[in-house]
Design a protein around this nucleic acid. Structure first.
Lengths: 247, 247
DNA sequence: ACCTGAACACCGTTCAAGT
DNA sequence: ACCTGAACACCGTTCAAGT
């Protein structure tokens, strides 16, 4: 559709007043593209195109694609509101913060991949780290253990966000494929899960007795439901409270 | 160096008896390349080159790059030995299994990225899942919770392997940069950590009081040391034992 | 001084044409 | 029947040449 109107958009007279390029504009355009075409498909060329310029122009504002994506990651985190006193004690607030982080990051496709390649250090990341450490301390976690605990929670957030993003991707693919008629959760349960169910379900008891025995549990509940997410986070926090390594 | 001898290697008479192509040969060549040039730099063209053929020939044995890497991932897991009765009770065995998984995957650069994009279902993956579930059951974890617990452990393994891979990459870069004279652990502590230390260390108490207060803990111990890995795994297992969600 | 067109050195994947 | 050369449609990044 861009082609049919390109000579109109290219015309300086009809072009929508093209705001001057800036780092913020580049990051915002890239984040919008992540949502539209997916993380992997966001190329320097496509970002440039969205900004009505050439790819070379982006390098005035970002060092390379990696650094651009790190900026997008931090920009996405700006939408995460910190829980307040009204949200309960430290544990309730920490659980709320973590679930907001997973929902926000997972809502921008695979943007959480940024946190896997490098340790993010943007202002929004630091804002959330500060809050996480504060809540952990309020929970009585040893000062020496707090950074490790925050790191563990971060690993959990990142991998959960990527799992959520994959789930949403599957969901979109299915609803798009089948005329978008059925409920979203229902649609997903057959598509993405059916192949995995087939793998686990057909393993013979002779070679994989435990997987075979747990077959109903492995399929019914779903590996990445909302209840499993809450359960996992509960495990980690209970573990933080229970774990006292031999001194 | 390939150039100087290319006309010799290209000569069928001097070429080392080029084994016939097979899926196993392709996977093995790709795994060797992952170790040599890194996960991101393993291209279809480079794998083909290592096998003295063209990239198109690979598509007889693998569907695409993603599926090739999934095969490499499973191949890498073949080296993981399952703990036996001599290794202690279920918990000791589970801890040993997890640390072997992290060490093995992390030793092949970013190969663990495979487990983030898709849920691996290769034979080696299933062998290890079977053992993990067996150990969890032996530990008294509820049948219904075992798949979730295994999933949580898998998230921990994957992200820890990627952290380890990043640490080893930094280490190699530093030791290579400075004449390879000093001890490896020592070399790393200044390079990869110093920039992160700078970020945390220079945050003012006014805006980030907790990070500021915990500054010594965040730098001294290191975010990804062996002790922190053991601590984190201990937290998760203690959490699995302590967590009993409201019924 | 700032911007960018064009080029460089790559990619994954396909398929017609060969053996 | 099997294999692959050559081509297609892309990449990220650089830099000389323009304004």
């Amino acid at each position: 559709m861009t082609d049919s109107t390109s000579h109109v958009r290219d015309n300086p007279r009809t072009r929508p007043a093209k705001a001057p390029l800036s780092r913020q504009a580049v990051l915002a355009a890239a984040l919008a593209l992540v949502d539209e075409v997916g993380y992997a498909a966001v190329t320097m060329r496509r970002v440039a195109q969205a900004l009505d310029t050439g790819p070379a122009s982006l390098y005035v504002y970002v060092a390379d694609r990696d650094e651009l994506m790190a900026g997008v990651y931090d920009l996405a985190l700006a939408a995460v509101e910190l829980p307040g006193p009204a949200d309960g004690d430290w544990r309730a607030r920490l659980e709320l913060l973590v679930s907001r982080l997973i929902a926000t990051l997972g809502g921008h496709d695979d943007i959480a991949l940024v946190a896997i390649t490098r340790v993010p250090t943007g202002p929004q990341t630091l804002r959330i780290l500060e809050e996480t450490l504060t809540l952990l301390r309020a929970g009585g976690i040893d000062d020496a253990a707090c950074p490790w605990a925050a790191d563990l929670l971060d690993q959990y957030v990142t991998s959960s966000a990527l799992e959520l993003a994959a789930r949403l991707r599957d969901q979109r693919a299915v609803t798009k494929a089948e005329g978008a008629a059925e409920a979203t959760e229902e649609a997903m349960s057959r598509a993405a899960r059916s192949e995995l169910d087939a793998v686990y379900g057909e393993l013979p008891a002779a070679t994989h007795p435990t997987i075979h025995a747990l077959r109903p549990a492995m399929t019914t509940a779903g590996r990445t439901s909302n209840t499993s997410a809450a359960w996992k986070l509960g495990v980690i926090i209970d573990g933080l409270l229970a774990h006292h390594p031999q001194p």
